[in-house]
């Protein structure tokens, strides 16, 4: 690693101020950032740790004009999200959070860190996009459809910090992950959520453009929420990732299989 200092502010405002210098970077759980720093692929002058900001560590139900939603502080670790949502109206979220990485990673990695990084194989982007959630920052609220902008790209601007994530509670939902055997990230992950006004399907791991919504499936499922509804759909494989672990055609196929399984598990 290159040399850098760590500053540990206790408020969001102080963190934003500390990040004002462009060479500084925010440090959440560090589970992706630290391996990157080890490779010397980033050279921050200062890391601004968000771990001391208590206002980022909360989780609870809230309700708004569009119904109930979970309000989750960006600093919540995967383990704590899993624990806090274990019982109640949204156990799918608990299962997703409880299957990110491994137990030790889940004790450090945070929902805000995961979303800010937007790894194309991460699980949370599929959840947030699949629920039509909202990413709240120190400056604004960003709808999920606007937030995710491709591989490791988000709508976040310089000095902008995620403070909360709002996740609407669906009627039923499920997430199916087919893991890449080495990294254990999603080779393909599909999140399916049924709301009163329709169905959303979000896919991670598969596309060269990062997380995306499978609109044909959403249309089909909004009329008939059953595995057979997606049977005749074809996932176009032109934008799929092709690598050591799977061809484009294989990933496109897995999207369909995982979607079907998510529906079956949800109902």
């Amino acid at each position: 690693m290159y040399e850098f200092d760590i500053e540990k502010p206790s408020t969001v405002e102080a963190a934003v101020a500390a990040l004002a210098d462009g060479d500084n970077m925010a440090l959440a759980g560090g589970q992706t950032l630290i391996p990157t720093l080890k490779q010397r692929l980033a050279a921050p002058e200062k890391l601004v740790s968000l771990s001391g900001i208590d206002s980022l560590k909360h989780i609870g139900m809230d309700s708004g004009p569009d119904g109930d939603f979970w309000r989750i502080g960006a600093g919540m670790t995967h383990a704590h999200v899993a624990l806090e949502t274990e019982d109640g109206n949204f156990t799918t979220l608990s299962r997703v959070a409880g299957n990110i990485g491994d137990p030790a990673v889940r004790n450090r990695g945070t929902i805000g860190g995961s979303l800010a990084n937007n790894d194309p194989s991460a699980d949370y982007p599929a959840v947030v996009l699949g629920l039509g959630g909202t990413v709240v920052t120190n400056r604004r609220e960003i709808q999920s459809g606007d937030y995710f902008q491709g591989l490791f790209e988000t709508a976040l601007e310089e000095g902008e910090i995620i403070t909360e994530v709002h996740l609407p509670v669906p009627e039923i939902s499920n997430y199916q992950k087919f893991v890449q055997p080495a990294s254990r990230f999603a080779l393909v992950g599909v999140f399916v959520a049924k709301f009163a006004d329709g169905v959303r399907v979000a896919v991670t791991g598969a596309s060269e453009d990062g997380v995306f919504r499978w609109s044909e499936a959403e249309t089909a499922l909004s009329g008939d929420f059953s595995a057979s509804a997606v049977e005749d759909l074809q996932m176009e494989d032109g934008h799929m990732i092709e690598d050591l672990h799977g061809t484009r055609a294989y990933r496109a196929h897995l999207v369909k299989v995982m979607t079907r399984r998510a529906i079956q598990a949800a109902v």
Binding site: P181, A182, S183, D243, L244, H245
Partner: peptide, 21 residues
């Protein structure tokens, strides 16, 4: 699971536990 895989340029594609299973 395991495969040490080189591409035609001689780069080890499975060069960490992220890709070497």
């Amino acid at each position: 699971l395991e495969q040490a895989s080189y591409n035609s340029d001689g780069q080890l594609v499975s060069g960490s536990y992220m890709d070497y299973a």
